[in-house]
């Protein structure tokens, strides 16, 4: 079990002292190499779930284990290393630095990877850009790119440290059909490399491509849907 959430609960207190529970007793287990789609209405808690799995947020109660070890037992620095080398997070709205160029954006995770030699930087960045078909864009500024191009750069950044787990928060969000298809194809190509993918999507067509689908049904409750559909 690469990812395991047991009775995970996340609670926010909003401005009016009302509690919001995007995750209310969520149970989720994902094996290595599995491709998982997460669907659900807006505001259900999908991003919250990915944030927890991506080690940038913590649970109010319950348990999250990564690779069989409870995340609470990792130190802050270890969690930073996990985010760096083990998890590639494609943020909702791509999370690129608009005023920097493509090369610098993709380079950010590499700068903090202690296992990669500085000599290898260029090679790794080129490889990541090549894998998303953006090798000619390296010197372009991000805010000059189209939505689809940005999304590819975001994927390249998530892949540059060759992580085992990829978290994709609506990577096809604002794209047209053609771009959607190519992004999904791109992510599915990684399956052969043994990567694990958790993808949040609103798009049922895309969700149907996944064997394993989870849906936020009630408030903060996650349940598997159509697990048998191929």
């Amino acid at each position: 079990m690469i990812i395991e959430l047991k009775n995970a609960k996340k609670e926010y207190i909003d401005g009016k002292n009302k509690s919001i529970t995007p995750l209310n007793g969520v149970n989720l287990s994902v094996e290595k190499g599995e491709y998982v789609a997460i669907i659900g209405p807006s505001g259900a808690g999908k991003s919250t779930l990915l944030n927890i799995i991506g080690c940038i947020d913590s649970l109010t109660s319950g348990e999250y284990s990564l690779d069989g070890k409870n995340i609470e037992f990792y130190t802050k620095n270890q969690q930073a290393d996990i985010r760096n080398q083990y998890i590639g997070y494609i943020l909702q709205n791509n999370g690129l630095i608009s005023y920097r160029n493509v090369y610098d954006n993709v380079a950010i995770p590499l700068m903090f990877n202690k296992k990669v030699k500085k000599k290898e930087y260029k090679e790794k960045i080129e490889a990541a850009l090549l894998s998303v078909g953006m090798q000619d864009y390296r010197n372009r500024r991000v805010n000059e790119l189209s939505g689809g191009e940005k999304q590819r750069i975001a994927i390249a950044r998530a892949l540059v440290n060759n992580p085992d787990i990829i978290l994709a928060d609506e990577p096809t969000g604002a794209l047209d059909i053609k771009n959607k298809v190519s992004i999904v194809e791109l992510l599915f190509q990684l399956k052969s490399k043994g990567k694990t993918l958790l993808m949040v999507t609103h798009d049922m067509e895309i969700a149907n491509e996944f064997k394993i689908r989870y849906s936020f049904t009630n408030e903060g409750v996650l349940s598997q849907v159509g697990g048998t559909i191929c």
């Binding site: 802050k76 930073a80 985010r83 999370g95 920097r100 950010i108 903090f112 990877n113």
Partner: peptide, 16 residues
């Protein structure tokens, strides 16, 4: 701010 956040997300420590 976002750049700072992306660094942290990408595994940088607060100090670095």
């Amino acid at each position: 701010k976002k750049e700072f956040g992306v660094m942290m997300l990408s595994g940088a420590t607060f100090i670095s």
